[in-house]
């Protein structure tokens, strides 16, 4: 786990929001890579949804178009 103490203070919104965008982008990339791997390992949509805090149906709908 990286040290989060360096996160820009909200009183520097320019830097803080840019960091949010970059983190969100990275999270989106990681999420898809991890779901693809989970499916490859035989996880069910219920298990993936549970891990992500969404329903099995939502996970299926969101990621099925991304599976090759």
């Amino acid at each position: 786990m990286k040290d989060l103490k360096g996160i820009p203070a909200p009183d520097d919104p320019e830097a803080a929001l840019a960091a949010v965008v970059a983190m969100r982008r990275r999270a989106t990339q990681l999420e898809l890579a991890a779901v693809i791997e989970a499916v490859r390992q035989g996880w069910t949509w219920a298990q993936i949804g549970e891990a992500l805090g969404i329903s099995a149906q939502a996970a299926h709908k969101k990621f099925t178009p991304q599976l090759r």
């Binding site: 040290d3 996160i7 820009p8 965008v21 983190m23 890579a33 991304q66």
Partner: peptide
């Protein structure tokens, strides 16, 4: 740079190309 400013920069070697 935005991640670096947040103290969250990753080494270029450690970042896999996105899917």
């Amino acid at each position: 740079n935005a991640l670096a400013a947040a103290g969250l920069a990753e080494d270029d070697d450690g970042v896999e190309a996105p899917v």
